[in-house]
Computed example of a mutant assay.
Amino acid sequence: MNLNSIPLTSSEIGNLWMTYQEKTMLLRFLEYFLEHAEDQSVHNILQDAYSASDQVVKTIHSIFQNEGAASPLGFTANDVNKRVPKLFDFYYEPMFLNVICKIEASLFSMYFSMSYRQDIRQLFKQLTAEAQDIFDRCSNYLLDKGVLVRPPFMSVPKEISFITDKHYLSGFNLFKEKRSLNAIEISLIHNSIETNLIGMQLMIGFAQVAHNQEVKEYFIKGMKLSKDVETSLGEFMRQDFIEPPATPAGKATNSTIAPFSDKLMMYITNLLGSFGLGSSSLGGAFNLRSDLPLELAKLAQKILPFIKEGGEIMITNGWMEEPPQVEDRRQLTRS
């Protein structure tokens, strides 16, 4: 029996559909970035990412076609204007791609574990490896240029120890000083701040060029939300006399000419917001000091309405493509 002839499951259809949306979005960004890339090393990374993403889109289209299913629309040449001035300054291209590959590596690894047909598992296995490779190259480039801030260094443990004081879990004891952050907590805070700094510059740039006034105001909210995340989480590091991450590169320029459609900019904002929400949940699960999960929960309460508002704006403007829908059999019970 040909295992690849087995019909696609709902999870495989959904994950392929999501991947098509994300990859066609990324292609439009890469087309614009390639138009302005001045550094040959960056150009090579962007070109390789573009070629790989373009092939994936074709592969997914072929899979849907073989299944007799309609391919998604995703994002097309109508969603990008490659020849407008740069919206972001030097080094932003690899910084942006670094974050996207971080998201992709997590998503594709999860999609792999949700796939059952051999060819679909192989596809997501390949996509995970490609995302990791581009992430690796972007990281090496940015580290070499000194614009990717490493998490703080610390002394390595010389012996094994166990927690004996229950106050280790407390962050609210008024009569006892809070313990300092541990390595796991610092890593999660650092990652969240780093991602939000890049996202904040994206929101600033988007707010400058959006055509729709409601969309423009939404991006301003996103800019302030990213700043809130950076400020509140950064304070935890400052309390331990640790400087939060910051970089002088990757800033929005003063251009007011849109390289992307409002639809495309809204989609990636929703994607980054959803990833931020997931990161907050992950951080809450692994932080052992009780004040940290509470702060992350407060931030999640701000992020979730922001994502919902974005979805409503996209629906109002006819920009939200509907995912594949299961047959509604509930009507059979109403007769």
Rank of each mutant, 00 (worst) to 15 (best):
Lys102Ile: 04
Lys102Pro: 00
Ile103Ala: 11
Ala105Tyr: 05
Ala105Pro: 00
Ala105Gly: 01
Ser106Gly: 06
Leu107Asp: 06
Phe108Arg: 02
Ser109Ala: 13
Met110Arg: 14
Met110Asn: 14
Met110Leu: 13
Tyr111His: 12
Phe112Leu: 15
Phe112Gln: 15
Ser113Lys: 09
Ser113Trp: 08
Ser113Leu: 14
Ser115Pro: 06
Arg117Cys: 06
Arg117Asn: 13
Gln118Lys: 11
Asp119Met: 05
Asp119Lys: 12
Arg121Cys: 11
Arg121Lys: 09
Arg121Gln: 09
Gln122Cys: 02
Gln122Leu: 04
Gln122Phe: 12
Gln122Asn: 04
Leu123Asp: 04
Phe124Ser: 02
Phe124Gly: 03
Gln126Arg: 10
Leu127Pro: 01
Leu127Val: 04
Thr128Ala: 07
Ala129Cys: 00
Ala129Ser: 09
Glu130Ile: 15
Ala131His: 11
Gln132Ile: 08
Asp133Ala: 14
Asp133Arg: 13
Ile134His: 14
Arg137Glu: 14
Cys138Gln: 03
Cys138Val: 07
Ser139Cys: 02
Tyr141Gly: 00
Tyr141Pro: 01
Leu142Phe: 03
Lys145Trp: 03
Lys145Tyr: 08
Gly146Glu: 13
Val147Gly: 08
Val147Ala: 09
Val149Lys: 09
Val149Pro: 02
Val149Met: 08
Arg150Met: 08
Pro151Ala: 03
Pro151Gln: 10
Pro151Lys: 13
Pro151Arg: 08
Pro152Phe: 03
Pro152Met: 06
Phe153Ile: 02
Phe153Glu: 07
Met154His: 07
Met154Asp: 05
Met154Thr: 10
Met154Ser: 07
Ser155His: 11
Ser155Pro: 00
Ser155Tyr: 03
Val156Ile: 11
Val156Asp: 10
Pro157Thr: 09
Lys158Val: 05
Lys158Ala: 06
Ile160Cys: 02
Ile160Gln: 14
Ile160Tyr: 06
Ile160Leu: 12
Ser161Ile: 07
Ser161Lys: 08
Phe162Pro: 01
Ile163Ala: 09
Thr164Val: 07
Thr164Lys: 10
Asp165Ile: 03
Lys166Phe: 07
Lys166Tyr: 04
Lys166Asp: 08
His167Val: 00
His167Lys: 10
Leu169Arg: 07
Leu169Trp: 07
Ser170Met: 13
Ser170Ile: 02
Phe172Glu: 11
Phe172Val: 14
Phe172Ser: 13
Phe172Asp: 14
Asn173Ala: 14
Leu174Phe: 13
Lys176Ala: 13
Glu177Gly: 15
Lys178Phe: 01
Lys178Glu: 09
Arg179Tyr: 10
Arg179Glu: 05
Arg179Leu: 09
Leu181Ile: 08
Ala183Arg: 10
Ala183Glu: 13
Ile184Lys: 15
Glu185Met: 15
Ile186Glu: 05
Ile186Gly: 06
Ser187Gly: 12
Leu188Arg: 14
Leu188His: 12
Ile189Arg: 01
Ile189Pro: 02
Ile189Glu: 02
Ile189Phe: 15
His190Thr: 05
His190Met: 11
Ser192Pro: 00
Ile193Lys: 04
Ile193Arg: 05
Thr195His: 12
Asn196Met: 08
Ile198Cys: 05
Gly199Glu: 08
Gln201Asp: 09
Gln201Ser: 08
Gln201Asn: 12
Leu202Met: 11
Met203Pro: 00
Ile204Trp: 00
Gly205Asn: 05
Phe206Trp: 05
